[in-house]
């Protein structure tokens, strides 16, 4: 590649930004080239990692989804849309997708609502704030393997704490993780306990940013505590709720590790998430091509969710 080519290419890219930041005087050609080169050198480590570990796998995965590539190296021939056709007719694929969506619904609501309640309670000025913050956030720091172990024991049908609790209040014990009608709920409970600290922290930070004089003013006007929460706190938490919701939905859609681990690697029809099915199709069933096709079906589903979110947000802003 000639220098001239590099220069023109560079000038449109980061160099322009660098030049803009440098000041009003537009740099001369040589200087611009030097700055562009420096910018590219600084960007290179990221760009290489980005291309190698994100862009390339995405493109290659898309290509694989049209082949019958196997994990063992066999196959690899072009099969057209056969993998996609199979995926759309695959009951297990739909079931796994439905499980993931169901999990997202079941987990997002408590993970947002309870986090908000916890943050509100802590913000009322309970003594020992740091202790509350720490204990609510601590589970979030644990590895998924650790929380899975903890909850497998809690949900143990004969000696688990969950059933002890049920027995204490006179209810029948439940085989939480073995019973198909309760195992997804059990995973939701464990997940809420595990990750709620993050949302809690976001809400707490937002609460502490609400200026105190607004409450003082409201109090002078005779507003009670509940009225203050309703008319001052909640409206100001709106933007935070949007962020929490978006992050939470994306996190819940990624369900895999805790479900896989808590089920002991067993793939149950009621807990198999779409990511687990991608893993099973590719690594256990050796079918990389098919597995890639399911990944892209899921990818498309997430993009649809993303677009829906964006449209809804824009509408809300427009209403305001």
């Amino acid at each position: 590649m000639s220098h001239a080519a590099t220069e023109t290419k560079g000038a449109r890219g980061p160099a322009a930004a660098v030049a803009g930041a440098a000041g009003a005087v537009p740099p001369t050609g040589v200087k611009r080239f030097r700055e562009a080169r420096v910018a590219w050198i600084f960007l290179a480590p990221f760009m290489i990692a980005f291309l190698l570990f994100l862009v390339w796998p995405i493109l290659h995965g898309f290509y694989l989804s049209f082949t019958d590539q196997s994990l063992t190296g066999a196959g690899g021939g072009f099969v057209g849309g056969a993998n996609y056709a199979e995926a759309f007719g695959d009951a297990t694929m739909w079931r796994s997708l439905a499980n993931t969506v169901l999990f997202t619904l079941m987990s997002t609501v408590p993970l947002v609502a309870i986090a908000l309640v916890m943050a509100l309670l802590v913000d009322t000025g309970l003594p020992g704030q740091w202790l509350w913050r720490l204990s609510f956030f601590m589970p979030y720091l644990l590895a998924s393997t650790v929380i899975s172990q903890i909850w497998v024991w809690i949900f143990n049908p004969s000696v688990g704490a969950a059933n002890e609790l049920l027995r204490a209040v006179g209810l029948e014990p439940i085989a939480w993780l073995q019973n198909e009608s309760t195992n997804l709920t059990a995973i939701v409970i464990a997940t809420v306990w595990w990750t709620i600290g993050f949302n809690f922290l976001l809400y707490l930070a937002a609460l502490q940013n609400i200026p105190g004089h607004q409450y003082e003013a409201a109090e002078l006007d005779g507003a009670g505590k509940l009225r203050q929460v309703w008319s001052i706190t909640l409206p100001q938490l709106g933007p935070t709720t949007v962020v929490v919701l978006i992050l939470q939905i994306l996190a819940s859609l990624k369900l895999f590790d805790q479900a896989y681990q808590m089920m002991g690697g067993i793939s149950s029809d009621t807990t198999r998430s779409i990511i687990q099915y991608i893993y099973e199709a590719g690594f256990v069933g050796y079918r990389f091509g098919y597995s890639a096709a399911i990944s892209y079906v899921f990818f498309a589903a997430i993009i649809i969710v993303g677009i829906l979110q964006a449209v809804l947000l824009r509408q809300r802003k427009a209403e305001k």
């Binding site: 994990l71 063992t72 190296g73 690594f283 256990v284 050796y286």
Partner: peptide
Amino acid sequence: WGAPYYTKLAMAGAG
């Protein structure tokens, strides 16, 4: 033990 082992062994052999 189990699927994780066989996945890794298969990939090592494939490579």
